[in-house]
Amino acid sequence: MKEVRRKEFYLFSPFLRIFHWIMVAMILVLFGTGIIIATPLQSMNLEPAYSTTYIDLVRDIHFVAAFVFCASFVLRIYGFIINRGDRLFPRFWKGYFYAQTVDVIKHYMLVQPNHQSFLRNPLARMSYLMLYGLVAVEICTGFAMYYMTEPESYVARAFAWVNVVCGNEMVTHLVHHYVAWGIILFAIGHLYMVIRSEFMEGESEVSSMFSGSKFLVHYPADAGDVDPDAEKP
């Protein structure tokens, strides 16, 4: 038998891991309730006393999940502040970033059998940055619509300008709806890629979101982003 030695790299703080899973759960709740709100279920087969209130219940669940999601997102940002491994964003100002990106793309296109070892590869970094942008749009448009139903809410009032920028509430609703689909499509692709990396490339993508550590055979090219004093052996 061949012995394989792996080096442990502590990457993700408890803030990222805990609130990552809370946000995953809230995204599922938000998407499910959002679909019902956008296209209410046929109520003719429901009891009259229930059919007039079920959509209100769905909206309440949607609102509660939205507030939990936003709170988790804020606390996750705190994790970015205290832990380097939580903020592995694209380094567009570094020339090697683009060469590494091409290297990863070639591997995913099956042009080459593997790519350099990374704690978080360049394509993943860019995709997460895009996700945070989508989340920001979703939060802004969501609170803008909430303002229309709860104009006395101080939190929602801070996002009233979004309806002005979009032109009207209907456009705000459409942006919110399509961005939600974008997040779900990202989640599907993300799930595929992390499972692929976990089992085909042994990059501890799934397990690291529970343990906080990655166990790699090869020394990662971006180790210095987590530990500036790291020296390649």
Rank of each mutant, 00 (worst) to 15 (best):
T39H: 15
L41N: 08
M23H: 02
M44G: 07
F73V: 02
A66P: 03
P48C: 00
F73N: 08
V4T: 13
G79P: 09
A25E: 01
G32K: 05
I55V: 14
M23G: 06
P113W: 02
I82K: 14
Y50A: 07
N121S: 05
Y10N: 08
V102M: 13
P90Y: 05
D103C: 04
P14R: 01
D103S: 12
Q112L: 03
V68H: 07
M26F: 00
L30I: 04
S13K: 01
F12I: 02
V111C: 12
I18R: 09
Y10P: 04
I77H: 07
V74H: 07
F97W: 10
D56E: 14
A66R: 06
T101N: 02
L75G: 05
W21R: 02
H20C: 04
F15D: 08
F63R: 07
W93Q: 13
L28E: 07
F31E: 09
T33N: 03
A25P: 05
G34E: 04
G34H: 00
L88M: 14
F73Y: 14
G32N: 04
T39I: 13
L75S: 05
K7W: 10
K2G: 04
Q116T: 12
A66E: 00
L110Q: 10
A65N: 00
F63C: 02
A49Q: 12
P48Y: 00
F73A: 14
C70W: 13
H107Q: 09
L41H: 10
L75A: 13
I77N: 12
V111M: 15
S51F: 13
H62G: 04
H115N: 13
F118D: 03
Y10I: 02
I27H: 03
D56A: 14
Y54E: 04
V4R: 08
R76S: 06
V64T: 06
L57R: 10
